[in-house]
Simulated assay, not measured.
Amino acid sequence: MFWWKQQVHTGVWAAFTDRSAGNLGLHVGDDAAAVHRRRRSLEGALPVPAGSLRFMNQVHSAEAAVVSTDGPASTQAAVTADALVSPDGAVPLAVMVADCLPVVLVGTLPDGGAATAVAHAGRRGLLDGVLANAVAGLREAGAGALQAWIGPSICGACYEVPEQMQADAIARIPELASRTAWGTPALDLAAGATAELAGLGVEAHRVHGCTREEGRLYSYRLDERTGRFAGLVWKDA
């Protein structure tokens, strides 16, 4: 079920799922009832209360939304955003991807607790500042000593882009510059995100794995009719 799972703060866990958890996206043409069953199964594996795992309607924006524990997530409409922030870490959070970066963030609160966030950082979101907005949300909650875990994504040797798109991107974040294994212009999203987070004063950790190369992960570039795996952060029950 998990590509990677680790306790990242006292009582706080982060993880990235793989294909064995099944498709977790409701927007890819899958049977909705089956997706909800997989999400409930995932909640049981974490474990967190049924219906508490918060997903979002991702649109490749830089929008970061603050979420609270006002009722179970299963009774609420998914917020349209590309980052979620839980100021006290009480809400289990999920971000879905199939090539873009899933980023999990944790910061220490003055009382020793943790504020948490997740972000969906594709090319557009990364360039538009989705990570900066997630970090701002954590700092507004009073969190310091911020750390981030960058999950599996399409790698710099596989993410081919047009030459002008590459030029525009690296003008904003030079560390994005890459070449494919076959010698064409490319972007390295993880390197770009690592640089962005460092500039924001966030210690970044890489969880390696290329979605296009690893059969255990979903890749939209490899197959447009594919599922979504998730980046997760939650507190012990």
Rank of each mutant, 00 (worst) to 15 (best):
F2I: 00
V12Y: 00
A14T: 10
A14L: 05
A15P: 05
F16D: 09
S20F: 11
N23V: 13
G25P: 01
L26Q: 14
H27Q: 13
V28G: 08
D31V: 08
A32K: 13
A33R: 10
V35M: 15
V35G: 11
E43H: 07
G44F: 08
L46W: 10
V48D: 00
G51R: 01
S52K: 08
L53V: 12
R54D: 08
H60N: 14
E63D: 06
S68N: 11
S68G: 13
T69K: 03
D70F: 12
G71D: 06
P72Y: 13
S74K: 02
V79D: 04
A81E: 03
D82L: 03
V85E: 02
P87Y: 02
G89H: 05
L93V: 06
L93R: 08
C100V: 04
P102I: 05
V103N: 01
V104W: 03
L105M: 04
L109C: 00
A114V: 06
T116E: 11
T116F: 04
T116L: 00
V118Q: 14
H120D: 06
R124E: 13
G125M: 07
L127W: 04
L131R: 12
N133F: 08
N133W: 08
A134K: 00
R139N: 00
E140S: 13
A145E: 15
A145I: 01
A157W: 06
A157Q: 09
E160S: 15
P162K: 13
E163M: 07
M165Y: 08
A167Y: 03
A167V: 02
A171W: 11
R172F: 09
R172N: 11
R172S: 13
L176V: 06
A177K: 14
R179G: 01
P185F: 14
A186K: 07
A186L: 13
L187T: 01
L187Y: 13
D188I: 05
L189T: 12
A191N: 15
A198V: 03
G199P: 12
G199E: 07
L200K: 06
G201I: 06
A204R: 05
H208G: 04
G209S: 09
C210K: 06
T211L: 04
T211S: 15
T211Y: 06
T211K: 08
R216Y: 02
Y220S: 05
L222A: 13
L222F: 02
D223P: 00
E224H: 00
T226F: 10
T226S: 10
F229V: 09
G231K: 01
V233T: 12
